[in-house]
Simulated scan of single mutants.
Amino acid sequence: MTTSGALVQSRDLAVSNWLLSAADDRSRAETEWNDRGVALLRCGGPFTTIRLPAPLVLAAAGSEDRARVSAYLRAALHSGPVFVDQTAGWYYCLVPARACESWREPDTECFGDDHYLGVPCPGVDFQHPRARSHWVVPMDGPADLCSPDAIRQLVEAARQRTAETGGRQ
């Protein structure tokens, strides 16, 4: 294994351990990651999430191309972690739990501590064959979360682009 491969593996292990601190049952969550590729984790502890509809994200990115959307999100959210539920059409930006105190953007939702979330197993290229979710922008490290202000700017950019193009990308 190369040094960079070992660093990625070490980072993914650290991120996994950090994310698992939000599990009600760590062992069960690890099994869920192994069996299904996603684990049910509680929002409101070490992190929560802001859920964005796919059309909003695609409008902000100005593209439906996965690689372009990923690059856009990486830049717009300063490498903050994002995953997508490709079946339901939602993007989830992991943010500090306190973000829900001031989040009021229409057509989006900040999940409080009464929500659970199916979080994909960390790993840059990991896509479990049975998982409906995968990381678009993987976590760079434990507690390395998105800025709610950057997400607000993304939402505003999507609204402006939609107004300018009449809904066309």
Rank of each mutant, 00 (worst) to 15 (best):
G118H: 11
Q86C: 10
D149S: 12
A14V: 06
T2C: 10
R26H: 07
W103I: 06
D113L: 14
L94K: 07
S133F: 01
G89P: 09
T3G: 12
E105K: 09
V15A: 02
A59K: 01
L77A: 04
G118K: 11
V84K: 04
A39T: 06
G118C: 12
E64W: 00
A99K: 04
S10A: 15
E30H: 02
G62N: 03
A163L: 15
Y116W: 12
P96H: 10
F126T: 14
T31M: 09
A59R: 02
P122R: 07
A54E: 03
A54I: 01
V69E: 01
A143I: 10
V155Y: 12
G44R: 03
D25W: 08
Q153K: 15
C110M: 06
V8H: 13
L94H: 09
G80I: 03
F126M: 11
L145Y: 13
R168S: 13
L52R: 02
I151S: 06
R66F: 06
D114N: 13
T2G: 15
S4H: 14
W33Y: 05
M139P: 03
P53F: 03
A67W: 04
Y72A: 03
G112T: 08
V119F: 08
G62D: 03
W18Y: 14
T108G: 08
A60T: 00
V155M: 10
A88G: 08
V95M: 05
P120L: 04
A97E: 07
V69H: 04
D114G: 12
C121R: 14
A158F: 11
P46C: 05
C93V: 07
P122C: 08
P106N: 11
Q160T: 15
G37R: 00
A157D: 14
R152L: 14
S4C: 07
A59L: 01
D107T: 14
V82K: 00
L13V: 13
S4P: 15
S70Q: 05
R132D: 09
W103E: 06
D65I: 05
E32K: 04
S21I: 03
